[in-house]
């Protein structure tokens, strides 16, 4: 039997959306005295139970605001879940919003060391892989230019190159296979595919069902923070298609209802 890679038990993630954001001391004191601090609770994830085995490639499907990115961030350890526990076996390479963690005033090559250190690489490891990273990112002489002068494609390319230079056990991909131009996209997809062959566990978020079908062998559907379905991609994909179709039909009705209920803001 395959080994467990990730075990999620009873994961719940609650956000407090204060109706008016209180972030000044005066406001807080006034509201505290008047007992006006009310939080609007919002569960981005609710009671998620899931075991992912080594070598499985799991696509995470769901509409906007279903909790996909929140789930990935919980697994990556960025969010600490309000309830439940995450068990992880093996090194995780999180590819979330590539290049967003760069320091803009730093040059590309300085960022390689900084970002590498953030991902837990050792200095020696980065020294060894430095050329490989620069080469893969195709930045050439731009590597010595401050990142603030990069285009967003260049930034993502560099982020992808740094994050994938390591051979991780668990790979978290959040819409990242759509970075750069068509050429780099193909190249990055190939690189990720190569990792698949070495038996890496993958969590993949994409809005393109095509891409999920091509890459993943398992899939889950999230809806309003709940796990609706989990299973082989062949079973889940049709279910998701049906779900989207169903949603489209009820859209006009829902919109009216929402206006009446005057819904408050969501996670994003």
């Amino acid at each position: 039997m395959a080994k467990k890679a990730i075990v999620l038990s009873h994961i719940g993630m609650k956000f407090n959306l204060s109706k008016e954001k209180v972030d000044s001391l005066k406001e807080y004191l006034i509201k505290f005295v008047r007992k006006e601090i009310r939080y609007n609770e919002f569960w981005a994830l609710k009671d998620i139970n899931l075991t992912i085995y080594e070598g499985e490639r799991v696509g995470i499907l769901g509409l906007n605001g279903a909790g996909k990115s929140t789930l990935l961030k919980v697994i990556a350890g960025v969010f600490k879940p309000t309830e439940g526990t995450v068990e992880k076996h093996g090194k995780i390479a999180p590819l979330l919003e590539l290049g967003a963690g760069f320091d803009k005033q730093y040059t590309g090559s300085e960022n390689i060391y900084l970002y590498g250190a953030m991902l837990g690489y050792k200095k020696k490891f980065i020294d060894e892989k430095y050329n490989e990273i620069v080469e893969f990112s195709e930045l050439g002489e731009f590597i010595d230019v401050p990142v603030k002068n990069y285009s967003s494609g260049m930034r993502s390319r560099l982020g992808f190159s740094i994050a994938t230079v390591v051979a991780p056990k668990i790979l978290i991909l959040d819409e990242v296979l759509s970075v750069g131009d068509a050429k780099f996209r193909r190249k990055s997809e190939r690189k990720v595919m190569d990792m698949f062959d070495s038996g890496v566990t993958v969590l993949f978020v994409s809005h393109s069902l095509e891409q999920v079908k091509r890459i993943c062998n398992k899939a889950m559907i999230l809806d309003h923070g709940k796990l609706v379905a989990y299973g082989d991609i062949d079973e889940v994909a049709p279910q998701y298609e049906k779900m989207i179709e169903g949603r489209e039909d009820e859209l006009p009705r829902r919109a009216k209802k929402n206006r009446k209920k005057k819904k408050t803001g969501r996670e994003n």
Partner: peptide, 9 residues
């Protein structure tokens, strides 16, 4: 904050 939101450290 940009880094804190992306990678756990």
């Amino acid at each position: 904050s940009a880094m804190i939101k992306k990678v756990y450290v």
